[in-house]
Design a protein around this nucleic acid. Sequence first.
DNA 1: CTAAATGTAACTATAATGGTTACAAATGGT
DNA 2: ACCATTTGTAACCATTATAGTTACATTTAG
Lengths: 137, 137
Amino acid sequence: MKNSRFAIAIHILALTSVQPREQLTSEYIASSVNTNPVVIRRISSMLKKAGMLTSQAGIPGIGITKDPTEISLLDIYKAVQGKDEGTFAMHENPNPKCPVGSNIQSTLEKKLNAAQQAMENELATETLMAVIHDLFD
Amino acid sequence: MKNSRFAIAIHILALTSVQPREQLTSEYIASSVNTNPVVIRRISSMLKKAGMLTSQAGIPGIGITKDPTEISLLDIYKAVQGKDEGTFAMHENPNPKCPVGSNIQSTLEKKLNAAQQAMENELATETLMAVIHDLFD
DNA sequence: CTAAATGTAACTATAATGGTTACAAATGGT
DNA sequence: ACCATTTGTAACCATTATAGTTACATTTAG
C-alpha cells in the first residue's frame, strides 16, 4: 500500500480556506477526501503537532494556524512522513571484506541524499497558497 | 519493508568494475551484498531487461554492457522501479461534489510530479562511473 | 552424463498502510 | 446535572509491497 498521507494532508489544509472552521469536522472532511473520519483525525493530529492546525476535543472543526503563504509543501511533507527518512532505502550489512561492500554505504548515502534533497528543495518552493490558488483556476 | 532494489542494483553494477565477469556469480555477489542469490538474480534480471547487463543460463557471471560513464543513476532507478510510479501517492476518489475534492487530483498531480521530476533530474546527473570513483577515494 | 550456474515460479515472513471499532475526554446545549 | 456531539487515541484487521527462501527447469562446460 502506498502512502497517501501527504496528499490527504494537503487536502485537509486546503479545505480550511473554503469552509468555516466549525463545519470542518472530521466527518465532513472525510466525506470530501472519501475516507474514514479516524484517518482524518490521525493526519490532522500530525499537522497539529507540526503547528499548522488547531483543534480541541469537544469543539467541532479544525482551524489553520498560519497563513497559507507561509506553509510550504515541504513543511507538510515533513509533518506527515515519519521523520525517519525519505524514499530511498539502503541494503544493510554489506560484506566489509569486499572492497565494494565496505564502501558502498557511504557512497550511496551521498548520492541518494542528494536526490532526496533535490525533491525537498522543489517542495520547499511551493506553498499551500499556490495549491489553493491552483484549485480554483 | 522498504525498497532496497535501487541500492542493490548500484552495488551489483559497481562490482562489475572490480571483478572479472566469470567471478561475478549470483552467489558471490550475494555474499558482497549480504543477501540471497535469488535476490541478486531477480534484480540482475531487471538490469538485463534494461540492457545494462548480460548473462546466460549455464555460464557463470554477469557482464556489464555499457560504459559506466554512460549509465546514469536515473537509468538504474527506472530499471528497478516498477514503471508504475514514484514516491508519492494520491488518495483515490475524492468527493466530486466538494470544490476541493473535485479539483485536488489534478492540482496535486502537478505539484507532486514536479517534486518527482526534481529528484529524477538529480539522479540523471550522476553516473555509475561517479559512484565507482567515489568508492575508491 | 554430470556438476554448476542462470532464470523463474511459488511460497513465507515481515512491515507499512488505510480502514475500522471502541472508548475516554472535552464541550456545549438543554 | 445530563446528554449528544466531537476530538483524540489505542487497538485490531485487511491489504499490499518487499525480501528471503525453496524448488526446479534450462543451459553450459567439462
